[in-house]
Design a protein around this nucleic acid. Structure first.
Lengths: 157, 157
DNA sequence: TTGTCCATAGATAATTATTATCCAAGGGTT
DNA sequence: AACCCTTGGATAATAATTATCTATGGACAA
């Protein structure tokens, strides 16, 4: 069981959008350059965030990506599920029903075990749901930074 | 993030050992036949349980595998970690330190985010730790079944 | 209405993790 | 010493993940 590295990338992408001066849309190239991945790959990643309703995109000259809602309304769970998908990490092949003999009592027990794992997963997700992107961006002294990522990108070149 | 299917197999293996008549050691072949995997693969799996201290093995004529401790002392977490390993499912490549600029405040924030995920994982594992193998084997009416898996295997052939 | 710059999307490749098998070597009883 | 078992190394098959390239389609401005 290993969390996808895409979750970390997604958090960084969203953090960049959240700290972008005046919420001006960021072009994919600026993001991909900063994350050091190919532009096409980055677009695939951001697309997931768009589908999940976390990011808005506009395909015009002055377009790019921007946050679809305030970072305070965006939880770590939202980000996690945008990348990992909403399906459970727990999958059963119903092996017990074959190993033991298929009958109601075995099926019931199998579900009991599955539910333990589902419950554990639920606790995991509930925890993530308690924290917003804003929570982790804002400092305790309420200072919030912003950058002009586009010009930073130009400087690097 | 997907739990390994080996965890389900491990639970079935341990359930077989726990329900084996008189705790008589079970040969790998009996287990592998029942789980429908190759004998060598099954041994690899059970080996992990041996290393984790859940199963005892004896390499003699009347040997095989048996539980190393009472099923009431064996938690779902023990089984989970025996197969999945004890390392965290959360891995950071410290991307934020590169995307933003490496300084104490960024590193601190990165750790804050990581800790949210670690905490969530801890809740997941704590939940698993609340349930023993015995909990899920024993029925509410305190009936506990036992089988002679070896002779069942012979019958199937 | 055309050009430009952008996101979208499909096909595909590279890499790594998982699941699984085979076979040779080592250990404990009888 | 013989037997039957587990251990462990090498290896293969499969599937998931991460990543890239190239072609297509959309919005805006001139």
């Amino acid at each position: 069981m290993k969390m996808k590295s895409g979750v970390e990338q997604a958090i960084c992408i969203l953090a960049m959008l959240a700290t972008q001066e005046d919420q001006k849309p960021l072009k994919s190239f600026v993001l991909s350059q900063r994350l050091q991945v190919s532009d096409s790959y980055l677009k695939k990643m951001v697309r997931k965030l768009v589908v999940a309703g976390l990011v808005e995109s506009s395909a015009s000259k002055e377009g790019g990506f921007s946050l679809a809602k305030p970072s305070s309304k965006m939880t770590m769970l939202d980000i996690f599920e945008a990348i990992e998908g909403k399906e459970s990490a727990i999958h059963s092949s119903h092996l017990a029903e074959h190993v033991f003999f298929t009958n109601d009592s075995v099926i019931k027990k199998e579900n009991e075990v599955l539910n333990i794992f589902y419950d554990a997963e639920r606790l995991f997700k509930e925890k993530l749901n308690h924290f917003s992107l804003d929570d982790v961006l804002t400092s305790h002294d309420y200072e919030k930074k912003s950058f002009d990522w586009e010009s930073i990108a130009r400087e690097v070149n």
